[in-house]
Nucleic acid binder design. Structure first.
Length: 281
DNA sequence: TTGTGTTTTATTGCCTCC
DNA sequence: GGAGGCAATAAAACACAA
């Protein structure tokens, strides 16, 4: 019994988990190292059936053994049960243990370890998913930067044309030009030349993803590419939505951030949110 | 056969909940 | 305080290359 009063197999030894010497004496944990490998060469499945557990002759024939694996049948049933519900209520534990010829504690341990394995796998899956999302985001960012450069060049070219007309004495509509490319070029392109962002986006001015100034854009601030909540309320950085398996208590194959967010891409592109962003769903 | 890496079973200690 | 969960870990069992 441990400090919390729990009963472990070795103290006192439970029927199902006894490690037997030839004489039928239980071998406890402390004696593990004494048992030779040769003695261990004769193997049998961990526990075959409840009947066998009580069959003295069965054990008499066996040499002392240590840890034994569960049979494929036992594992199969446990897996099926785990699929149904990854948490084990006392009744189900007892029932399963009876069915499998195991100690309830063994069933509990199996579930515990199975949950741990599931969690590890889930973390791997989530990592892959986040990585691909990041890659996609990065690629979108590069496209936006390129588009931005292209538009700058376009603006510069138009400005030069305006300057040329001005020098030639031709009237320039809405003229209120600054001599240099400063500020937002807003005045330079004022009035008739000012084209609404939506229009630009909808015309052949390119496949620009650049949107209104009020709209959130990717900014290379030197920080993470992941948005923070202050600037991207609709987005969530990885980790924010981590949900422990206890939250839903099910093994439904969902990732470790199950329903917290999904990519905007998957949601037919949320308005104003570049492809690849994660959004609350 | 042996060395080595991986998987599985089990224990321990700590934490939370009732 | 007891029961049960989890992380960390030990150690047996297994797989496999050399």
């Amino acid at each position: 019994m441990d400090s919390s009063g729990r009963l472990f197999f070795s103290s006192p030894p439970c029927q199902g988990n006894m490690l037997f010497l030839g004489s039928g004496d239980p071998v406890f944990r402390g004696a593990r190292s004494v048992i030779s490998m040769e003695e261990n060469s004769k193997r049998r499945p961990f526990f075959s059936s409840p009947e066998e557990l009580f069959d003295e002759e069965y054990y008499d024939e066996q040499l002392p053994e240590k840890k034994r694996r569960l049979t494929p049948e036992q594992v199969h049933l446990l897996e099926k049960s785990f699929e149904t519900e990854n948490k084990l209520e006392p009744e189900r534990k007892t029932e399963l243990a009876k069915k499998l010829g195991l100690q309830p504690r063994q069933v509990a341990v199996w579930f515990q370890n199975r949950r741990a394995r599931w969690k590890t796998k889930q973390l791997e899956r989530d990592y892959d998913q986040l990585k691909s999302s990041y890659d996609s985001l990065l690629s979108n960012y590069d496209a936006v930067v390129k588009d931005n450069d292209r538009l700058k060049t376009e603006v510069l070219s138009l400005t030069e044309k305006l300057q040329a007309k001005k020098v030639a004495g031709e009237p320039v509509l809405g003229q209120k030009l600054e001599p240099t490319m400063t500020g937002e070029m807003n005045d330079a392109l004022a009035a008739p030349f000012h084209v609404k962002v939506e229009d630009r986006l909808s015309t052949g001015s390119g496949e620009s993803a650049v949107v209104d100034e009020d709209c959130r854009q990717l900014v290379d601030s030197g920080d993470s590419y992941f948005p923070n909540d202050d600037h991207y309320p609709g987005c969530v950085a990885p980790g924010d939505g981590v949900q422990s398996e206890e939250d839903d208590g099910s093994d439904d194959g969902q990732n470790y951030f199950p329903t917290v967010f999904e990519s905007a891409e998957q949601q037919n592109q949320v308005e104003g949110v570049p492809m690849g962003w994660w959004v609350w769903s």
